[in-house]
Amino acid sequence: MRLMRRKRETPDIPLASTADVAFLLLIFFISSTVFSIDEGLPLILPARGSSVVKVSVKNVARIVVHQDGTVTVDKDVVPVENIAGIVRDMIAANDKLVVSLETDPRCRYGRMVRVLDQLKLANATRISLRLYTPETG
């Protein structure tokens, strides 16, 4: 008696689409990755004990950030977003201008950065950071 031999089916996983799947994942990760970039406002501080440079009063623009967030440029209250334009004009009129940024210690740090940002927008390079105390004002 001849028995029909059963054909044995070999199990098979189709691998033809693995490359597609890998590419899909790759494209997803490439497009969704956000590289964290550090951005900030760089500044060079004067070293402790460095020689004191005397600057003429007429070459100093005094910007004060008060406790309540109001900003004054040479005692005139100005909106923060106008500072860049004002300082740019001042630098155009006097290239030796030193900007003295005085901030009240109780004022929010974000406010001071906002003003410093405006100074950077105005391409002010000579910036001095000081603490504002009512005695100095």
Binding site: L41, P42, P46, D104, R108
Partner: peptide, 24 residues
Amino acid sequence: PYGLVSKAIDYLKDANAVRVAFMA
């Protein structure tokens, strides 16, 4: 408050670290 940052800046000056950046 800015007073705290100012204090930290003073300590940096004491350490002679003059290059700073305010991250924003």
